[in-house]
Design a protein around this nucleic acid. Structure first.
Ligand code: MN
Ligand code: MN
Ligand code: ZN
Ligand code: ZN
Lengths: 145, 145
DNA sequence: AGTACGAATTAGAATAATTCTAAGAAGCCA
DNA sequence: TGGCTTCTTAGAATTATTCTAATTCGTACT
């Protein structure tokens, strides 16, 4: 059938949480995988509408939250800007380009994460760490996309 | 005369930016220094009102923004919660306790910051890094305050 | 196939934090 | 003191997100 290649993994993860793989959830997830530029909910909405013109913004928010809950997508925040969504599940930091507003994934070797955790005094038990860079990316990097 | 001990540094920093040291700015800054628990604007407003009952919330927001601009205070965000304010100017990470909602400062040795910066591929020029832990702090830590 | 019933979607209202607007008060200096 | 600029203030506006309540959908019996 006309399943996208990722529908299977999605269906599985949703089922694990007792949820259904609906067309809306599939198209939202596909959109995130197709252009991994950390879009906002509004941007996802715009992209999804071209494939499914009847979808509502509320549903996009619902689907995104569901995907985050199932650990298929990460929600990413910079200051008080709108939440952005990232389907990269590997441990990674984010680099926010102040000039362009673009967001880049920065892979994080496990050794670095371990090192970072050494700063925690005893009594602090961290379940997650988030590392965010802010600065400027060169044109070369921007074109690499 | 009845200057708080920090009024001097504040006045200097403000003057450096061509701004005045007003009573509102002084009391907002004092409140931040007196209880370094990363209060929100609303919390700052409540604390300031007891000293200066006529101050407005808009002014608290204005003062906080001014202090951030002058690099006397850091704005700290967790997910989409209200912005919190921190007068600790040393390089530090934040630990957000998921159970209590409390925020702790985690000192960051310069060596760690350098190590973290090594994850950036060439072409990425970071002007700042932010490290945020999420997890649980022990009762011992909570009492240490 | 038809019915029941929880899950999911939808449009629009509501909310929360923050920013904006416009008017007045205060500070500074000639 | 007058003139100019900065600062404060109340309230309106904005923005992103969540909530509400009504439909629609999907699945599981019968
Ligand atoms: Mn930006
Ligand atoms: Mn929390
Ligand atoms: Zn990412
Ligand atoms: Zn802090």
């Amino acid at each position: 059938m006309s399943h996208s290649p990722n529908a299977e993994a999605l269906t599985q993860r949703l089922a694990d949480s007792g949820l259904r793989a609906t067309p809306q959830r599939e198209v939202v997830y596909d959109v995130l995988l197709q252009k991994r530029d950390h879009p906002t909910a509004d941007e996802v909405f715009a992209r999804v509408k071209s494939e499914m013109p009847t979808i509502s913004l509320a549903t996009v928010y619902n689907c995104l939250e569901t995907l985050v809950q199932c650990d298929l997508v990460r929600a990413v925040n910079f200051e008080r800007g709108p939440t952005r969504y990232c389907p990269n599940l590997r441990p990674h930091a984010h680099f926010h380009d102040e000039k362009t507003g673009r967001t880049y994934d920065i892979e994080l070797p496990p050794a670095i994460l371990q090192t970072v955790n050494t700063v925690l005094p005893s009594g602090f038990d961290a379940s997650s760490v988030e590392i965010t860079f802010r600065g400027q990316a060169s044109a070369k990097v921007a074109n690499r996309e």
